[in-house]
Every structure is written in structure tokens, then in C-alpha cells.
Design a protein around this nucleic acid. Sequence first.
DNA 1: TCTCCGTATTTTGGATCCAATATTGAAAAT
DNA 2: ATTTTCAATATTGGATCCAAAATACGGAGA
Lengths: 220, 220
Amino acid sequence: MSPDEARRRPPTAQQFVLGELRRAITTGRLRPGTPIRQDALAEELQVSRVPLREALKTLEGEGLVTYKPHKGYCVAMLSLDDLREVYRIRELLEEEAVRAAVARLTDDDLHRIEAAQEEVERAAAAGDVAAMATANRTFHMTLFDCAGMPRLARLIRTLWDTTDAYRSMYYGDAGNRERVVKEHRAALDALRRRSADEAVATLNVHRDRAVAELEPLLDA
Amino acid sequence: MSPDEARRRPPTAQQFVLGELRRAITTGRLRPGTPIRQDALAEELQVSRVPLREALKTLEGEGLVTYKPHKGYCVAMLSLDDLREVYRIRELLEEEAVRAAVARLTDDDLHRIEAAQEEVERAAAAGDVAAMATANRTFHMTLFDCAGMPRLARLIRTLWDTTDAYRSMYYGDAGNRERVVKEHRAALDALRRRSADEAVATLNVHRDRAVAELEPLLDA
DNA sequence: TCTCCGTATTTTGGATCCAATATTGAAAAT
DNA sequence: ATTTTCAATATTGGATCCAAAATACGGAGA
């Protein structure tokens, strides 16, 4: 392992495993519904089952995996109802976050969001699905973090995690990527004018488009 | 151990520990801020540290304990800002839940909520703080569950858990208990008339009163 | 007396081993 | 042929043991 990797590697095995599992799920390497064989996964990640199980417990709390006693863990599978419910809850919480954020938004905050958007546009143009997903997330979370409501931001993050497994498929389509870029620009425009109402409205449209695109993917 | 206890005892040690820890925290036996010594706790509960740590991971996800790598777990301590944030989020989510619930409320649902209220009144009259806490929770959660939004209900439950450690103090006061009974009656009245607006309004008042009473307790 | 440093102790993190439960498959009975 | 039962196997749950990190403590130096 390179020194760089060694430096980045988390201080505990469970955190390392947690990161790996999250990536595996969000990138689709572990597909929804897949049962998780602890022994095999532990060996693959070169750790024992103990830290693996603690990481899985964390993911269970976040809703990324499900757990049944004596049966084990599965990558969580979202029903259509689940998807709609998650997005409805996101709508409620994100509106609150955006309003609080706009009320406190500094120029520096705005610059950070703009920087994230530049990254989004770069990834969209390059067709880099993974970079697109992370940059998009940064764009939104940077805004939400400006609300100064850490628990709210954490809840929203968890809700995003829930659908991450499906979002990567979504960015595979060039049309979707282009649309996301445009909608972000509209939101940024509202933010620059410190218009909470417009920001909320544009982001609601943004979210509704996403769920509309995601729904067909879940039928299969 | 009696056969009855044996039957009730969960099928896995981690679930047993989880329940015990939750009780210990909500009843105040484990006070906010206290560090959790895994060895001592494990011995006290007659299990090894493995299931204890998995239970703690679950509680961490729920925000009842905090965790720092190589430092361990502490019973979570709420700042005043945290308290206000939690209650603000609850306001958002519970309004949604109540509106959805009222729209679907059957007579049978209503009977179950009324039954919970009878239990609340019994506990309030008897001055039984623990019974009061659980009955009150049943009253509200029964309503929220009627919304048919399981993820929303789960989120709300988690938010309640966060402040449970403080709520038990709150019911120690007879005046608070009496007020809760009255406010519940008002909410029930609104529910019987299927008035979502009034139900939301009365429950908002109910919640605001609670946070107002809780705030002084957190200063210390 | 105070600070700094190094060692001893405590506490957490992780690996291995064993136990308990669930699943699978094959044989026997209908 | 179908179903049921029981044993073999796979998989999870938990206990013990060891390693690593953090904390506490005591002594040396200023």
C-alpha cells in the first residue's frame, strides 16, 4: 500500500469497512437485495468479522442494509412506496434546511457552493458518473450545512444514503446529467439573490424530476 | 429467572442489551455525559463485550450515545441548541404524520389512541412517572403509525429517543402531568372530528410546552 | 512548585475460537 | 411422485484472548 493510501486509511478497521461498504453499495457493486455473507466479505476486506459486523450495524441504522436476527444482513431494497416516502420526508427537511441556510448564507458559503457546481459541470461534461454523484452531493450538502442545524443535516444525509444505490444508475444518462446542471444553475441564481422561496421551489422541482426518473428503475 | 422473563428475553444478547441500555438511559440510571465502561457494563449485564458493542453502535445511530474512535462511548448530552433543533425537526415531521394519519384514521385507530389516553390518565393520577412516559409515548406513536409512513414514524421515534433521558424528569412534576392530560384530551377531540388543522395546532402547543419546561433542565 | 517526559495501567479495537440457529439435501414413509 | 423427517452443512451470535491506543501516574529537571 502506498503511503498516501496508508495516510488516508481510517484509524479503525470498522471505519475502513464502513467506507468500503458504502462505496460498494452506492456504486452498485453490492446490489439491493443481496444477502451479505460475513465470512466472505471479511476475508475480501482483510479484516475479521467483528469490525465488519459493527460497520453493518451502523449501516443498518442508516437504512442501507436490513437485519434479521440469526438470518443476517441484506443490502436494503426500496419499494416504490419507500422511495416516495423518503423523497417526501426529504422535501420537508430540505425546505427547512434551505430556508435556514439562506438566512445565514455568507459570500464565502456561496463560493463553496459555486465551486461544487463547477465540479458538477466538469463531471457532467466528462460523463464521469461517480464524480457526478459525489459532486452533486457536495453541492447540496454544502448548502444544507450552512443552515447551522447539524442534526437536520445529518438526517438529510442519511436519507440521501438510502437512495444512493439507485442514484448512480440515474447519472448514467447524459440527458439527466445535463438537466441536473441546469437545475443547479437555477438554484444557485436564487441563492445569489438570497431568495429562499425561489431556492426552495427550484430545488423541489429538481427533486421531483429525480424521483420521477428513479421510479421506473425501481419497478425492476 | 422466571419462565415469564425467559420468554420475554429477546433471542439475541445484543437485543437484550439494547433494551436494557435504552431503559437505563431513559430512566436516568445512566446520566447524559457519563462515559460507558464496556468491561464493567458487560459484566453487569452478564454478556461479553461483543454484543454490548453492537448494541452501542445501534444507539449511536439513534443519537443516544456518542462515539469517538479509541475513546469509546458516552451517553449523549444535549445542548440547548440540540434540544431546540430536535423539537423543530419533530414539528416538521409530526405535522406531516398527523395530517397523513387523520386522512386515514379509522374508528378502530381512534379506539386504540383513546385506550392509550386512559392509560396516561391512570398513570398521571397515580403519579407513576415511568408508566406516564411509556403511555404518553404510546399515545403519540399510535397516532403517528396510522399515517402509513413507516420510515417517517421511525424517524420520529428516533427523535423522541434522543430526549427521553430528560423527559422522565419532566413527568416528576404533578402540574406537568395534569397539563399533559388536558392537552391530550384536546388533541383527541380534534382527532374525533377528523380536523387535521386543529390536531396539528393542539399538538404543536403540547410540544412547545414540553420544550419550554425542558429547557431549564438542560442548563444544569 | 510547576512542567515535561517516560512508564504503568486502563480501556478500547480486533482476531480467533466455539456455540447456537438456520438452511440444505437426502432418505424414508405415505 | 409427494411430503415429511432427520441429519449434515453453512452461517450467524457470542466469549475469550491478544494487540493497540489512550489515560494516569510518578519521577526528573528547571
